[in-house]
Amino acid sequence: MRHIISILIENEAGALSRVAGLFSARGYNIESLTVAPTEDSSLSRMTLVTRGNDDIIEQITKQLNKLVDVVKLIDLAESAHIERELMMVKVKTSEATRAEIKRIADIFRGRIIDVTPMTFVIEMTGTSDKLDAFVKAIDETTIIEVVRSGATGICRGEKGLHL
C-alpha cells in the first residue's frame, strides 16, 4: 500500500543522505521525496512516498525514528489528510490543437503559465492520481517535458506534525 510519511528532521548537512541511505541500505523503495525548511529554519520537513505491506511500513517508520537527526514523523495514511503535488508540463502546440489542450487543462484546473508559438507550459496541482490522469488525457506525442515535485501532504483538522 502507498504511504506518505512526513518527517521533521534537523536542518543539517547530510540529513537528507541519512534518510536516502537508510532506504537504499535496507532495500525500501522511495517513490518520491520532497524537502524544504519549515517556518523554524533549524528544521526541515521531508515528505516521502513509499510502498510496502504493514510490516515494511512499520520497519520504515521505526528505522527513520531511530536516525538521530529525525525529530518526529507521522504516517499521513493513518488519518484524514490532504495531499498535493505540483506538476509543470510542456507540450507542443499548433493552431489546431491549442484550444483542445486549453480545454483539457481547464477541466483539470490547470493554468497555462508560458506560451510560445509552438509550446504551452501548463501548471497543475492536485493529488498524484489527478496529475497522472491529466498526463493520460492529453496526446502523448505532444508532451515535451513533465516536471513533478513529488507529493506533499498535511493532516486535516487538529492533528498534525509539529514540535
Binding site: 510490516d55 512499520e58 520497519q59 521505526k62 528505522q63 525514528n65 531511530k66
Partner: peptide, 11 residues
C-alpha cells in the same frame, strides 16, 4: 531498548 529491533524479523 531499540523499538526497531521489535518485530523486525520475528513477529
Amino acid at each position: 531498548v531499540d523499538p526497531a529491533s521489535i518485530s523486525k524479523t520475528v513477529k
